[in-house]
Nucleic acid binder design. Structure first.
Lengths: 364, 364
DNA sequence: CGACTTTGGTTAATCGATATACCTGCGGGT
DNA sequence: ACCCGCAGGTATATCGATTAACCAAAGTCG
């Protein structure tokens, strides 16, 4: 199919929109001032609540503004105040054929919930790699397009906090438990607790050969979770059946699962670093003729909505990404000089037990 | 967990970022002009390629700009030119507890691919309902925050194209085959073809009792696909085993599936309006003790990445959402006065046959 | 009663870039 | 020698809002 444009008889939306076709254009502060019989300065002060304006005049101005449907121009305000009321979220996508991790959908939902009511916008960008991400921040800052940025997936040696600090751009970092870095970290910090709970659950079900599928080694949370996993097992006097690092792709999930299930001493439970991969792993296991959870148990991470509806329903660690997003937004807004309540992120990651985990199979 | 901020000994990122902490602030066009020994007008013209500037001076200016790391201020340019180089995408999410439909991730990927290289940004907003969506456009336009908008999920009596036309905002509408409306439609127009192909596939497999799960009746594509479905069956001398409208939520998918499978004359195949719902339906069927595809076949729509990895792998109609996104971006950019190639959207929706469809079970 | 404060507003500079109108040499034609 | 045209820039108004400085009128107080 071709995008309409040629071979159409009754073309009704020609080329670019002609300027001024919408009448006299949008009203400016001048029009409002004239309508209210005051100066533009008064309008500005009335709307912003600054300066000394009588209640009567203020109402008159507000009425005039509403009447004309006027809102201050974002560009003009941004220029004058050097604040754009825009926050950037840059998503690095592993490969460019796949879409964005569903994880981000949740995060965005959480962010938007706090940003929108305060008149802030979310500027979304997708980049292939870390180098492009840094270059993008430089450009966005150089152009003065944003007031702050949300950094996701902290890495062990992450160049971004330092960069943004140098650029003077407020930022928050997700996925890092570290304190005192160049930018504040938010949530996703007690990842270990979630993993520990998952391990405890599996141990209680009688599992002894538990394998762990980890994310890319360069991510901070990968290490945190991995050591939590190993430690939790160690406390029970066990060692991991296996630990494999992956690049977070579905392909890798399938490949690793197949490999783990072919091990001479097959693990009875698999712990995955996110739900997408867990789903893939579950599929791979089933395809290999194993039943979940009778032959092998599977645990995911993130508790995506979809997991509730699969068969079997996916047991997963809920880390409340939405709330983390909200907290990140609040923290960032505070750093942008906005007057917001302190971000409270009560609770920690919790395991949600569903159907993909069950008693360990009797020893063969 | 609490967001760090209190009870911390070595606070190292205090309150709002203090102004000017990053040195002399970002360079302006004046600095570049001074460095190059020319006027600011010359700098502007050199950078924009307008006016008459000698090649030598141009290079000198560009060098100075690069040296200082200067890019024109987006706010200033936007104010002067009345162009923000920002496009809005407003996502309406059915309920606020769930995240964003993965479908949108694909769409965004496609949009970004064309927007980013041209220096355009994507402003993302989430709203609960249609009324809020319209109000949001009004605000964004009143504030002059955007140059255009991508409208998704065309409705049969959609107020948005008219609204944006009145507001004078360039826009494209996704999911509408209609021509000649107030704004151009893009792709997602031959939905019928995809459904027809799916039906043909099922018929060839021997299915005779095929049920159709439809989206909300108010969406344009729902009607288009539904009639394509009924027509395709009619051509084979059949009637739908059932047609049910839903609100696109996972809950509805599960409920409808359970209802359909409990029908006295149980359908042997189910066609869903998107992959998320198909996955839910598949889960519901399996949970009801049915095997997919031996007892019941399932077809989705969208061909999301995840479908490839489930067990069984999901048969689905691929409508190339990413490409549609790219085409939408190009069409919109053209309407914004940008010089871009005409959007070509070759191909039409195609069925991808995987494992969730199989021969119809022998009649009981 | 005159200096002083307070109230309620206005004037004008400013943010950074763009575009129009306007100079300034300089070579060429006559 | 004089005017013209043009290449190559520059001075300045402008986009729309904010804000510091300022001002007029109306209390206020010793």
């Amino acid at each position: 199919m071709k995008v309409r444009r040629e071979d159409r008889p009754g073309e009704s939306f020609p080329g670019p929109v002609e300027e001024g076709s919408a009448g006299p254009g949008r009203p400016t502060i001048k029009a409002v001032a004239a309508a209210a019989g005051v100066s533009t300065a008064t309008v500005s002060q009335a709307v912003n609540g600054t300066g000394r304006i009588s209640e009567a005049t203020r109402r008159r101005v507000l009425a005039a503004a509403a009447e004309l449907g006027w809102s201050p121009s974002a560009s003009a305000t941004a220029l004058r105040r050097a604040r754009t009321r825009t926050i950037a979220l840059v998503v690095r996508r592993p490969t460019d054929v796949l879409g964005v991790d569903p994880h981000f959908s949740e995060l965005i939902t959480g962010l938007e919930g706090e940003l929108a009511p305060r008149g802030y916008g979310l500027l979304l960008h997708l980049v292939p790699g870390l180098a492009e991400e840094s270059a993008l921040y430089e450009r966005l800052v150089a152009e003065g397009r944003i007031d702050g940025a949300v950094l996701t997936e902290a890495r062990s040696d992450d160049p971004r906090p330092g960069l943004l600090r140098r650029l003077g751009l407020p930022a928050v970092l997700l996925g890092s438990p570290e304190r005192g870095g160049p930018v504040p970290g938010v949530g996703l910090g007690q990842q270990g607790a979630g993993v520990r709970e998952a391990v405890a659950h599996l141990l209680a079900l009688g599992h002894r050969r538990i394998a762990y599928v980890a994310g890319p080694a360069e991510l901070v949370h990968t290490g945190a979770r991995r050591s939590a996993f190993e430690q939790a097992l160690a406390e029970a006097g066990l060692r991991p059946a296996a630990v494999r690092h992956t690049d977070f792709t579905e392909e890798a999930a399938v490949a690793v699962t197949e490999e783990l299930l072919a091990l001479p001493d097959r693990p009875t439970a698999l712990v995955f670093p996110n739900d997408s991969m867990a789903v893939c792993g579950m599929g791979a296991a089933q395809r290999a003729g194993l039943r979940v959870p009778m032959d092998v148990s599977v645990v995911g991470y993130d508790n995506l909505p979809l997991g509730r509806w699969l068969h079997p329903r996916l047991s997963s660690v809920d880390q409340q990404v939405q709330r983390v997003g909200a907290a990140a937004a609040l923290t960032l807004l505070a750093r942008c000089g906005e007057d917001v309540p302190t971000a409270l992120l009560e609770g920690r990651p919790r395991l949600v037990v569903r159907e993909s985990t069950g008693p360990a199979p009797a020893a063969p």
